[in-house]
Amino acid sequence: MSETIPEIAFNWVDKRFRTGPPVLENITLTIEKGEFVSILGPSGCGKSTLLRMIAGLTPLSAGEIAVNGMTPVNARELMSFIFQDATLLPWRTVERNVDLGLELEWATRAVREQKVREMLALVGLSAVAGSYPRQLSGGMKMRVSIARALATRPSILLMDEPFAALDEMTRDRMNEELLRLQREHRWTVVFVTHSVAEAVFLSSRVVVLAPHPGRIQEVVTVVLEPERTNETRASESFEGEVSRVSKILRGAHNA
């Protein structure tokens, strides 16, 4: 795709549904190209809504969002959305699932075959290409979901608590892999989570939301080496950052 890596800009965005109190208020936020930003907050603070608005899946009530200077719907080509559950099609094999986005976007057969093979190798699932989703573990399903999202060569990944359903060890490993791939491909990632440790480990910045109505409490820049491995988790500076962000999150809770 294009050489210019896009950014995401929220400009005084509000969201309220027809009934009930406002969900999000006065969201102004800029995400730079190649950044890994986490959205952190208690449940019900509008994290997912915020992410869905970037994708153009939920309309705004006020303000505007620009993705690489375009409206979210027009910028969908640049983005892939990864849901909390793997959302695989159970009637398709692993490789046909990875193929889905390319197929819907009318890619040529040659491109599709090559891309699918490449993506399966990337997430380490070449051996189960012909299996059906029900034969896979939760972690493997999520890998398929990620492979599918990457196959259409997005420059922005929108991830809605993608690893929340996985056990801790699998989750840690997936975090490391994701980070490695992100560094390599320079994707812009917006990552919704309710885990402070996950947010700190992955992100260059953490957006902490306060609830009722959802608003930005603070945008925290994570002070850690950009190179992060399993050792990072055991380091003192990591623990320091986790407790710093936790404190802000608690403050947001009581705000």
Binding site: R76, E77, F81, F83, T87, W91, L100, L104, E105
Partner: peptide, 29 residues
């Protein structure tokens, strides 16, 4: 059909026909 799956198809700019034949119909089998 799961709303998330419809959103997934929309993200790939699927047409109504594509959603019907590649998502709704197999799901309805």
């Amino acid at each position: 059909v799961d709303e998330n799956l419809i959103d997934l198809f929309l993200m790939h700019k699927a047409s109504r026909a594509q959603i019907l034949f590649k998502l709704r119909l197999p799901h309805a089998m």
